[in-house]
Amino acid sequence: MIHNGKNSRSTIISKGISAGKSSNTYRGLVRVGPTASGVRNFTQCDSLLLGDQCGAHTVPYIEVKNPSAQIEHEATTSKISDEQLFYAMQRGLGEEEAVALIVNGFAKDVLKELPMEFAVEAQKLLAISLEGSVG
C-alpha cells in the first residue's frame, strides 16, 4: 500500500488459513511518502490454524517518511476449538460441514467484499481444499 496523497486512508485485512503441514506467511508493505501528511492505515492479519503441524507468520513492513502518519497493525492467530466443532456437530452438521462453516465465518470479512459469484465460488473452493484436513 503506497500513500502519496494527503489524508489518504487505507485498510488491509488479511485472513490466512493453514491446514495439514502448510505454513502461511503475510508480507505487506505500507509506505507513506514525504509529502503525504495525515495518512492513516489499519492493517489486520488473522491466521487460522487447522491441526497442530501447520504454522502462520506475519511480517508487516512499514516505511513512513512523513511524521504525521498513523499506522496500525493487529495480528491474531486462532484455532478451531474442539468446543466449536462439537457445538456445530451437535446441532447436526457433519464434521466437514462444521469446519467449512467455521472457516467461512473466519474469512467472512474478506468474502463479503467479493462480488456474489466470486464469493460463492471462493466458499466452495475453501470447502473442497479443506476436505479431510481435520482429524
Partner: peptide
Amino acid sequence: PVEIPGVSNVQFLREALNS
C-alpha cells in the same frame, strides 16, 4: 454455549436444520 465468529445464527441454524 460456544461462539462462532462471522457466522450468523440464521445461517448456522439453517445449515444445521437442513443437514
